[in-house]
């Protein structure tokens, strides 16, 4: 774990803007989940800062949640593509690569392999975060082939079931019948079976969900990253509504997310036996570490 590149040089510390100094002192770097997890995401400027998305954007919320859940933000690189999502992703203090249209999983393939050859003894996490269009339409072949090749990184699809950034066109992930731009008579084919495709292509950990439960969502993100480190490709298909194009009043965004969480985004978690072993081990270790810290705290209090 290297924090050197985010540690201010001693002499310049007082010449840096405060929020940069706070990155290390109060930011999520080098911290445990209890100290810096989603439960505390309000305290970090990096995750709090004004996002450039529409008011009430559920995607912006989920992206913040992703960053708050990272097991090791100081060793993580995110990759995105054109779409609303990258506007928020680029606000975080984690490196973000913005490539060409839909090529995030191809980029991640190169990046992950290059990291492994340059840093054989380090863990560097790579996550692609793209919309339904980038992941399942324009980037489809690159997404699928990165899974088929067994590339070890995490793919997160922010599914708002529409091309929000270009003004509300129908996507492969739009539900059948949805009347959207470029589907003026209603979309005439089914929503693409993303998680089935992921399973067929060899993803070893797959979750479909509507991230309304903060703890459950964080757990899934971490599981996906831990498994990708050791076993193979992992995929999270998350519902992140577009309240503008689907005309969801801001105050109803949460209710809509809960509603879809009961419907086509019903929680579904798949893992291979190999993935399961990793999850059980890592979560066991985390639990033990939590216990140990608690015990130490109690001991300290007693003393």
């Amino acid at each position: 774990m290297s924090l050197a590149y985010i540690t201010p040089s001693e002499r310049f510390k007082k010449y840096l803007p405060k929020d940069y100094v706070e990155l290390i002192d109060f930011g999520p770097f080098g911290k445990t989940q209890e100290e810096a997890g989603p439960g505390n995401m309000g305290q970090f400027k990096e995750l709090m800062e004004e996002h450039p998305m529409c008011s009430g954007c559920w995607m912006a919320y989920y992206i913040r949640l992703i960053f708050a859940s990272l097991p090791c933000p100081e060793e993580t690189v995110t990759i995105g593509t054109a779409g609303c999502g990258r506007l928020a992703i680029s606000q975080a203090a984690v490196p973000f690569i913005y490539g060409n249209y839909g090529d995030q999983n191809a980029m991640a393939s190169g990046l992950t392999r290059a990291f492994r050859l340059r840093f054989p003894d380090k863990t560097k996490d790579v996550i692609t975060i793209a919309g339904d269009g980038g992941t399942m339409d324009i980037g489809f072949s690159m997404t699928m082939h990165s899974w088929i090749r067994g590339e070890r990184f995490t793919t997160i699809m922010l599914d708002n079931e529409v091309y929000g950034n270009t003004g509300g066109q129908s996507s492969g992930m739009s539900p059948k019948g949805a009347v959207l731009k470029m589907a003026p008579m209603g979309k005439d084919f089914e929503k693409m079976p993303a998680t089935d495709l992921a399973k067929a292509a060899g993803c070893v950990y797959i979750v479909r969900m509507s991230p309304t439960n903060i703890k459950a969502a964080a757990k899934v993100i971490r599981r996906a990253i831990f498994v990708a480190r050791e076993v193979g490709p992992t995929f999270i298909h998350a519902y992140t509504s577009c309240n503008i194009e689907y005309s969801i009043p801001t105050e109803d965004v949460f209710a809509d997310a809960i509603e879809l969480g009961k419907g086509r985004f019903k929680f579904d978690e798949y893992m291979t036996d190999e993935a399961k072993i990793v999850i059980e081990r890592v979560e066991g270790e985390e639990k033990a570490a939590r216990k140990a810290r608690k015990a130490a705290k109690v001991a300290e209090a007693v003393n």
Partner: peptide, 20 residues
């Protein structure tokens, strides 16, 4: 590695390049 097609290839090169 043999990539999926050329756009995938050239994108993977761009990705790997970021790692130095």
């Amino acid at each position: 590695y043999r990539a999926e097609e050329e756009l995938g290839t050239m994108s993977a090169i761009a990705g790997a390049s970021r790692a130095g």
